[in-house]
Design a protein around this nucleic acid. Structure first.
Length: 201
DNA sequence: CTAACGATTCGCT
DNA sequence: GCGAATCGTTAGT
């Protein structure tokens, strides 16, 4: 099935919360070492560079790590969490506005054998890609892909294969950001209700 | 230079 | 349910 690649301009939308929800159901693909792996995005979280204490680049915070978030939307922000997990984000909005979307879960589609191998697993189940660290591992994404364009030959997104209606999507508070104070209450996490591949209910 | 810690995961109880 | 794993980033001395 031939699907249309999503252009980088898609990520330049100025509403990161809208985009985080809109990304549910879309397909993310990687092509490393002549192997295609892909999955349907089932869970995301929005982070706003302005007025969001949970965001690494909140209030103009500019470091080597967050620098990529200030680029024009359409590139990857990958960072190492707990010294172990590589977490994948999509940089969105315009230049100098450090919005990003964390991909928290996908439903495997192509290259399941490769994903199993990368994850050191024998059989596919919901633990294969239902979490921000595990899906990155399954797709072969590491901090080496920091700054990679999201319409490149190695990492790209495709239009949703199936229609996802607004009522198919649940919105809740974001995970693991208790340090953000009142911003931890924002309903900026989205997931596909019908999917088994969701990190937490 | 030093120390604390994290947008997590896994194994063990 | 709890705690270890593990290291780059960050802020403070």
């Amino acid at each position: 099935m031939l699907m249309k690649k999503i252009p980088r301009s898609y990520f330049q939308n100025n509403n990161v919360v809208f985009l985080a929800k809109d990304l549910i159901g879309k397909k993310i693909c990687t092509y490393f070492n002549d192997v295609l792996t892909s999955g349907i995005i089932t869970e995301t979280e929005a982070y706003s560079g302005r007025n969001d204490k949970a965001c690494h680049a909140n209030a103009g915070r500019r470091t080597n790590r967050t620098e990529i978030m200030y680029q024009r939307g359409g590139v990857a922000y990958v960072y190492l969490c707990y010294g172990i997990h590589h977490l994948l984000n999509f940089v969105t909005n315009d230049e100098d506005i450090a919005d990003a979307i964390l991909v928290r879960a996908i439903e495997p589609v192509d290259g399941v054998e490769t994903m199993l191998s990368r994850r050191n697993k024998r059989k596919p189940d919901k633990t294969l890609t239902s979490g921000p660290g595990t899906l990155s591992q399954a797709l072969g994404i590491t901090t080496a892909n920091y700054g990679m364009e999201l319409d490149s030959d190695h990492l790209w997104l495709e239009e949703a294969p199936d229609l996802v209606k607004p009522e198919d999507i649940e919105s809740t508070t974001r995970i693991g950001i208790d340090y953000a104070g009142e911003d931890a209450l924002l309903p900026w996490r989205f997931y596909l209700k019908s999917s088994d591949f969701v990190s937490k209910r």
